[in-house]
Amino acid sequence: MKRLLLALALISAPLLANSPLPSAPYAYVQLEDPSKEAEAQALMQSIRCLQCQGQSIHDSDAQIAGDLRNQIRLRIKAGEKPEAIRAWLIERYGDYVSYAPRINSLTWPLFAAPVLLLGFAFFMLRRRFAKGDA
């Protein structure tokens, strides 16, 4: 049931409207250089598909996702760094497009959470065991 929701997005998107043109050159084709392809993969897995919003462009059959994969592979091929491409996309679509939240005034609690949780656990445990060993 769970993944169904996402799958619906994936499936229904092409039904909305379908371009007759074949997919873009690098939508379904890997880069020749395996290390660059790995870079592109990692980036594509963390970019949200704009049409079927529950999935990354790496996992989507929507045409716009294919076009964005094409764009990303071309840019990586041309030597651009993945983080520069991510920044370029965030500049256009906002933070929502990236599954990797940046650390800023809005998201710091997200990154403080592991530290706070560990600290809290440590505090509770110390009280517990300090007494127990006494």
Partner: peptide
Amino acid sequence: GTLYPLIAETVGARVSVGPPY
């Protein structure tokens, strides 16, 4: 992590939290 996008929306921002987090 799951609720954070909702928390961000209370101040009018949209963020995504995914595998990299």
